[in-house]
Amino acid sequence: MGVAIRRAGEGDREDVVRLLDAAFMQDPVSSWIFPGEEYRLRTHGALMGAFFDLALSEGYVDITEDGAAVALWWSVPAGEHHEGDDDGPALLRQAVDADNERVETVGRLTEAIHPTDRAHEYLHLIAVHPDRQGEGLGTALVTAVLDRCDREGLHAYLEASNTRSRDLYTRLGFAFMGTTLDLPDGPRMWPMWREPRTAGEAAV
Score class of each variant (00 low, 15 high):
residue 119 A to T: 14
residue 128 V to W: 06
residue 94 Q to H: 05
residue 193 W to K: 14
residue 98 A to V: 07
residue 71 A to V: 00
residue 99 D to A: 11
residue 152 E to K: 13
residue 61 V to Q: 03
residue 93 R to V: 10
residue 65 E to A: 15
residue 151 R to A: 11
residue 145 V to K: 01
residue 117 D to H: 13
residue 140 A to Y: 01
residue 106 V to N: 06
residue 53 D to A: 06
residue 154 L to I: 04
residue 57 S to C: 01
residue 5 I to F: 08
residue 4 A to R: 14
residue 170 T to Y: 01
residue 155 H to M: 04
residue 30 S to D: 00
residue 107 G to H: 08
residue 147 D to C: 12
residue 51 F to K: 10
residue 110 T to L: 14
residue 96 V to L: 04
residue 6 R to N: 02
residue 199 A to D: 03
residue 117 D to N: 15
residue 40 R to E: 12
residue 115 P to R: 04
residue 74 W to K: 07
residue 102 R to V: 02
residue 72 L to Q: 03
residue 111 E to D: 15
residue 42 R to F: 05
residue 196 P to C: 13
residue 9 G to M: 11
residue 182 D to I: 07
residue 151 R to F: 01
residue 38 E to S: 15
residue 198 T to R: 04
residue 28 P to I: 09
residue 19 L to N: 08
residue 94 Q to Y: 11
residue 111 E to L: 13
residue 143 T to N: 09
residue 13 R to F: 02
residue 65 E to P: 13
residue 85 D to G: 13
residue 5 I to N: 01
residue 146 L to N: 13
residue 141 L to N: 08
residue 123 L to G: 03
residue 10 E to A: 08
residue 202 A to T: 11
residue 142 V to A: 10
residue 110 T to W: 02
residue 49 G to W: 09
residue 114 H to A: 12
residue 150 D to I: 13
residue 184 P to A: 07
residue 93 R to E: 11
residue 64 T to E: 03
residue 97 D to E: 14
residue 72 L to S: 02
residue 150 D to W: 12
residue 185 D to N: 15
residue 194 R to T: 11
residue 144 A to Q: 09
residue 169 Y to H: 05
